[in-house]
Every structure is written in structure tokens, then in C-alpha cells.
């Protein structure tokens, strides 16, 4: 697959093929992390996190490819690894070949946002499976509400829509409550 094909697949919600393709980069990245004090586990973890950030970045309507995707992926990985090392109170120079030096802004990484996402993740365990399924099918798989209504046995597209928004409303409301409780 070419970079453009991968990007197209990601944008169309057909990530699996694209991710498999990108996963081929893992061995090279792993070598870099292992050589600078990391282990297999953290390497895989960071790689997964990088892929997610990459996909998020690519999915944005205003995304423009300015380097090879694999290079971009390396750059994200390098950033995250540096971040991790900083947490571990180490700051070695990372000498990776063909790597972009990216800032947090470049890759859309934001500590505060990550905290919020962690919170929302907990919130999502509080909504029903059916809600999660609707979210997943609509936002992740990018399926139409008509298909979702059929798949999840809703009586009509409208009732599926209603349910989706009920779920959304509930989740946001729960998040607000949790936040208020945390700061109070």
C-alpha cells in the first residue's frame, strides 16, 4: 500500500488493513527503543500509542502529508519515548535515523487532554454496552445510522439516532459530574 492508500483507508474507517501495513514498522522502532534503555513491553505500548496518534492526526480534515508516513510514525514514537524517559528522569540524546523531530503540538499531544480522555474512558465503562456499540459503529467504523439501526435492531433510524444522542448526553453529563466532584 502506498502512503496515499493508507491515508484513504484510514479516512474511510477501514483502518485494519492500514494498521497492518503500518505495523510492519514495529521491528525497526523496537530496535531503537531497546537500544536506548527500553524493553519490548514499553516498545509495543509506545508503538500502539503512536499509531493511535497517527491515525487521529491523519483523520483530521486538514491533514497534509509532509513526510513519509513511516517517518511521521517514527517521529511520534520518538516524541513519546522521550516523554517517557523524561518521566523516568533520564534525558539521553535520541539518535534515530530518518526521524522527524516533532513537538507536542505537531502531533496533537496534550497532557491535559490525555487526562480528560482517561476520565472519559472511565465514563465509558459506565454507559451500557449498547451505547458503546453505537458509538463504536458510528464514530469508529463510520457506519450509517441506517445500518446501525438494522444491526442493533432499532425500530427505525430515528430511534437509533435518539438512542445515540441519549447515550452521548448521558456520557457528557457523567463526565461533568465526575469533574465537579473531583474539583470540589
Amino acid at each position: 500500500m502506498t502512503d496515499q492508500e493508507i491515508i484513504k483507508a484510514i479516512k474511510n474507517g477501514k483502518r485494519e488493513k492500514a494498521l497492518k501495513e503500518l505495523y510492519a514498522e514495529f521491528p525497526k522502532i523496537k530496535v531503537n527503543i531497546l537500544s536506548s534503555g527500553g524493553d519490548e513491553m514499553i516498545a509495543r505500548q509506545l508503538f500502539h500509542d503512536s499509531l493511535i496518534l497517527l491515525v487521529e492526526k491523519v483523520s483530521k480534515p486538514d491533514f497534509e502529508l509532509t513526510a513519509k508516513l513511516s517517518t511521521f510514525l517514527y517521529g511520534i514514537n520518538r516524541f513519546l519515548w522521550k516523554n517517557e524517559l523524561r518521566k523516568r528522569q533520564k534525558n539521553p540524546e535520541l539518535e534515530w535515523k530518518d526521524t522527524l523531530i516533532l513537538s507536542a503540538e505537531d502531533i496533537g499531544y496534550n497532557e491535559e487532554k490525555e487526562e480528560k480522555i482517561k476520565l472519559l474512558e472511565r465514563i465509558l465503562t459506565q454507559v451500557t454496552e449498547k451505547c458503546k456499540k453505537i458509538f463504536e459503529l458510528f464514530y469508529f467504523k463510520k457506519e450509517s445510522m441506517a445500518d446501525i439501526a438494522k444491526k442493533l435492531e432499532f425500530s427505525s433510524i430515528n430511534s437509533a439516532k435518539t438512542q445515540k444522542y441519549k447515550c452521548m448526553e448521558k456520557a457528557i453529563q457523567l463526565a461533568k459530574q465526575t469533574q465537579t466532584n473531583a474539583t470540589a
Binding site: 485494519e16 505495523y23 480528560k116 480522555i117 474512558e121 465514563i123 465509558l124 458509538f135 469508529f140 452521548m168
Partner: peptide
Amino acid sequence: SDQELLIQTVNRQAMMAELNSIA
């Protein structure tokens, strides 16, 4: 922004599951 974050979270969860199945 709340809705955006929620969607992002949903997507990350789903994607992580996908990645783990690949891995």
C-alpha cells in the same frame, strides 16, 4: 469539545482493541 473528546476516546478504545488483535 466534550463531544469531540468523547468521540476521540471511543475511537481510541476501539483502535486499541484492533491493534492488540493485530499484535
